[in-house]
Design a protein around this nucleic acid. Structure first.
Lengths: 200, 200
DNA sequence: ATGTTGACAGACAGACCTGTCTTGTTCAAG
DNA sequence: CTTGAACAAGACAGGTCTGTCTGTCAACAT
């Protein structure tokens, strides 16, 4: 399944959900759209239609909510990647389909870059464990896909692709999806070509 | 000249400088190290040894100081790039020398990513003009270097290199310089090779 | 000598942010 | 029916943030 990543939380949370879910979904939307520091507890509480004490019953602090948000973001992002990677017939085609998948993401209405890159940038000099963890997991997943595809030097290829992915996310965030599309496709084609597959 | 980018403001500002310079240099160091929102006016004032009214005489608001900081950062970064780009004998060698230059930056003590990517991430949904401007200027400079080097499709090559540069900065920031070094060199080599030069 | 200019020191206001507490309501299990 | 858990609404405290204001001082030009 290939649901979009940022649309699904675009509208307000359903009032049918329980308090914790409403808070988390509202935080998911506001944290991603406006940033961690710029989003105050009061706004999350107001927009999720929840009492302050209900919030603090489920999340002992704002930091706990941020952690839960990043956990959820990680789970959804990896599930989205899995859907896009596994949608092709072969592991190598799955890798080759990544640029188009990312391009779809870049053009989705609520796109505002990678939540973990943004979170890391906001965190300043203190190291946020979750953001690094997400990138490590992504790197491991890409490398596994390279191994499954039988590419030469899967570690190097995965590192190259990952660097291109990060660059494309940043380019799309700052200069629009069109600025990332061409370079990302070319860099992927060259890297996969060098790794032993046929050139597109 | 190839001065480092983040070291020079590592120690406190010299008390001999005038108030505006001391404020700006302190902001340069604190904004980059801890982020824009996390750095309060009071701290900048205290660490620069300046009166609050002196600060507000030179900068009408915190946003004005942020703008001045980004201006200074842009000027210094482009000057650094110019020194690294022009240090080689030919324009093409200048491009080929970029991965090593960036690697030096990634390993410099105060490195914490690109100030403009970080600033853009902090700004949230409102568009900060300065951050986009910096990337446009960088793109134009790289493209000009590609033209000077006589490469085929200089626009495409410059876009590819720029995407690799952004990716390397993010990878180095989140996972260390070693995570960026190999992929950046390989992506540069492949791109320059495809553009008509000899392969390293 | 006197006025001007720039700077230092710090109090202060108003807004915002996190987190605690109080009060009242709903609803379901015992 | 009673009891207790989850929840809504909102006051409150303590801190921090930006930006304004009042004084004081030293250098310097007229």
């Amino acid at each position: 399944m290939t649901f979009t990543l940022d649309d699904l939380a675009g509208s307000g949370p359903l009032p049918e959900q329980d308090a914790r879910t409403r808070v988390l979904e509202t935080a998911y939307r506001l944290f991603y759209r406006h940033g961690l520091r710029a989003t105050g507890i009061d706004r999350i509480i107001a927009e999720s239609g929840v009492a302050k004490m209900s919030f603090y019953r489920h999340f002992p602090s704002k930091q706990a909510l941020i952690d839960a948000y990043l956990d959820l973001r990680h789970a959804r992002w990896m599930a989205w990647l899995e859907g896009r990677l596994g949608g092709s017939s072969s592991p190598r085609d799955g890798l080759a389909a990544l640029p188009d998948a990312l391009d779809d993401w870049f053009r989705s209405p609520g796109f505002r870059g990678c939540a973990f890159i943004n979170g890391h940038a906001e965190a300043g000099s203190d190291a946020p464990a979750m953001t690094v963890m997400h990138k490590r997991a992504l790197a491991a997943r890409i490398e596994q896909q390279c191994e499954d595809a039988g590419l030469a030097c899967p570690g190097d290829v995965a590192a190259d692709l990952l660097l291109a992915i990060e660059g494309a996310i940043v380019r799309a965030q700052m200069d629009g999806a069109d600025a990332a599309r061409g370079p990302l496709h070319r860099l992927f084609a060259r890297t996969l070509s060098d790794a032993g597959g046929e050139r597109a």
